[in-house]
Design a protein around this nucleic acid. Structure first.
Length: 581
RNA sequence: UGCCCGAUGGUGUAACGGUAGCACAGCAGACUCUGAAUCUGUUUGUCAUGGUUCAAAUCCAUGUCGGGCAACCA
């Protein structure tokens, strides 16, 4: 078994274990199946979110750990709600999340029946590829007297099912049913006029066994099959059969499908299928604090322009999280840390944030950048004189190397790093006080320059010219070290400071309108002063602006125009300390 | 209301009849040219009541609370 959490693992992390993996392990030990085969089956009616990421990691993780395969399958049985845009985004998101981790486990769809899908990138499976076979299974069920065409209206069907009453069309002859179903398929009837139903047990305590619908009429163009069909299989009918057709062994879904399981089994067991049948297992979906997860709600945020799009970095979508700068490794570690159970809990965002910081701390390149600048003039440094100083790219990873930063008489430091009237335990710059400039000198604040309104506009300081890193008095202990950039050399960058989208941990608690608790300060845009090396920032790399936060280059960047997204702040013990007083 | 499922510190999880552990969060301290990271210590828990057993978080019963389903959605 390979290591699940760290791809370039040094410390051996324990293999994940949960009740589903326990079942799979048992089946492997029993040699119940020739090969473990899972699947991730999203409906292409929205963008994937972090809850889907949990499912992807579970399904691909199991395939990885047990030498199996996992198919990506579009569960596209309802053309009126689905769109090719979603198909494409889903594919991109899944490929991104499993890249370098479970690529080898991704099932390849080499026999796509429909369309011309030859391509370098792996193609997903489609339930719609099986519409012919699923239709034939429906006919088989009719022939066995286990399905019938029902003419009841939707309202009547509802009422009959609620009252455990048999449909008056339940006992039509096989020949009659075959004829009606053929005519349904031929397009003779309007939407809703007739349906195909399984004949199971109208009195079952489980609603899903009360002669459930198998096929409905929808005169709608399908994004994959075009105008070929005007009848489409329902989820329950299509899903178990798609699983069977693909040779799935473990069909893992969320808890709300638990009551459907008897129907899943009934359909497969009543078709005299020759191969081993797949089985369904359910786990709890993910809820994370300070966000919403339902596709409907996310869709609302997008269509009402409360965010900039599905990939807005504040969204819990995979594309939003990616754009924010989170790496697939971080997301996978998060998925691993939260585990798999049948308990519907609320995961603390701190768990997600920890996984993101842990990963970024290891990999991000350190840079100096000032978000809210205030000018510092070093009065004992000659104007025009510059110095190149060594700065390490990652203190935890020597192989990340060093770069040089330019030092000069006029600098910018963070406005928050100076306090005219310092609060208790303030380690930074204050009048008459000393502070270390990272990688450079210790400076002392001699004079505070203010404008007519009394705002601090400039600080005049002197540098201890022997205190340079490596110099004679470099060892002098100064309580604080702050970041800085040379005013003349700094480059501007737009920085987008993202915060949580909602002000409440449970935005939709007790039926409250989730949009009433949107965080008005979830985005703040600033122009930062950055060290010059950042002009070469690359979208695939991550940066830590020291003492502030982790950042990633946004896709809105252009030559000469840098845009950085704040992925997540550093932990800030000072903010906590300052809050106490 | 019927049916199904669940309940372990603040949160998420482990323990599979035999010492309630881990992670996050919190708190305290050490270290620090990032108030980050790292390191050390630490507070807090088996829903309730019965039963079975030498022994129960674990098995059984009842109750309580929570979630899901009752779409021609998935």
């Amino acid at each position: 078994m390979s290591n699940p959490t760290n791809d370039n693992a040094n410390a051996a992390a324990p293999a994940p274990s949960d009740f589903i993996r326990d079942i799979v392990a048992k089946h492997v030990a029993e040699k119940k199946y020739p090969r473990i085969h899972t699947r991730f089956p999203p409906e292409p009616n929205g963008y994937l979110h972090i809850g889907h990421a949990k499912s992807i990691c579970l399904n691909f993780g199991i395939a990885r750990e047990f030498g199996g395969v996992c198919n990506l399958r579009m569960d596209d049985t309802n053309p009126t709600k689905e769109d090719i845009e979603y198909v494409e985004s889903i594919q991109a998101d899944v490929n991104w999340l499993i890249a370098g981790w479970a690529e080898k486990e991704l099932g390849l769809n080499s026999q796509s029946a429909i369309g011309n899908r030859q391509s370098a990138i792996p193609q997903p499976f489609y339930a719609s590829d099986y519409f012919d076979q699923i239709h034939d299974f429906a006919v088989a069920l009719i022939k066995k007297g286990k399905a019938f065409v029902c003419d009841l209206t939707p309202d009547e069907t509802d009422e009959y099912r609620r009252n455990a009453k048999e449909s008056p069309f339940r006992n039509r002859s096989v020949a009659e049913n075959l004829d009606w179903f053929t005519r349904m398929k031929a397009g003779e009837f309007s939407d809703g006029a007739r349906v195909l139903r399984a004949k199971i047990d109208v009195a079952s305590p489980n609603i899903w066994l009360r002669d459930p619908l198998l096929y409905r009429i929808k005169h709608a163009e399908h994004h994959q099959t075009g105008g070929k069909w005007c009848i489409y299989p329902m989820y329950d009918f299509a899903h178990c059969l798609s699983d069977y057709i693909e040779g799935i062994t473990h069909s893992i879904c969320t808890l709300e499908f638990e009551v459907h399981r008897p129907l899943y089994d009934w359909i497969l067991e009543n078709l005299d299928l020759p191969r081993a049948l797949p089985h369904q297992y359910e786990f709890a979906r993910l809820s994370v604090g300070y966000t919403v997860m339902s596709k409907r709600k996310l869709m609302e945020l997008v269509t009402e322009k409360l965010v900039t799009g599905w990939d807005d970095p504040r969204m819990p979508t995979i594309s939003g999280i990616r754009r924010r700068g989170v790496t697939p490794e971080a997301l996978r570690n998060f998925a691993y840390n939260i585990g798999i159970t049948k308990y519907n809990g609320l995961t603390d965002v701190a768990v997600l944030e920890f996984a993101i910081r842990e990963d970024l701390n290891k990999n991000a390149l350190r840079r100096l950048a000032v978000l809210r600048p205030i000018k510092v003039v070093l009065t004992n440094v000659p104007a025009g004189k510059t110095e190149e100083l060594d700065a390490v790219n990652n203190p935890g990873d020597e192989s990340a190397g060093k770069r040089q930063i330019t030092f000069s008489r006029e600098l910018y430091i963070e406005r928050d790093d100076f306090a005219e009237v310092p609060p208790p335990k303030f380690f930074r710059l204050k009048p008459g006080g000393e502070v270390r400039l990272k990688y450079a000198y210790i400076i002392k604040c001699d004079e505070v320059v203010k404008d007519a309104a009394g705002n601090v506009t400039e600080l005049h300081c002197t540098a201890d010219l022997d205190s340079k890193t490596g110099g004679a008095t470099a060892g002098r202990k100064v309580k604080g070290t702050i970041h800085w950039v040379s005013a003349a050399h700094a480059i501007d960058a737009e920085v987008r400071l993202y915060d949580r989208l909602f002000t409440e941990a449970e935005p939709d608690k007790d039926g409250r309108d989730f949009k009433s608790v949107l965080n008005a300060k979830s985005l703040e845009v600033l122009t930062a002063k950055c060290e010059p090396s950042l002009k070469d920032a690359k979208p695939e790399l991550r940066y830590q602006f020291e003492r502030l936060a982790y950042f990633a280059l946004d896709k809105d960047s252009a030559p000469g125009k840098l845009v950085f997204n704040r992925t997540i702040t550093l932990k800030d013990a000072w903010a906590k300390e300052a809050q106490k007083s």
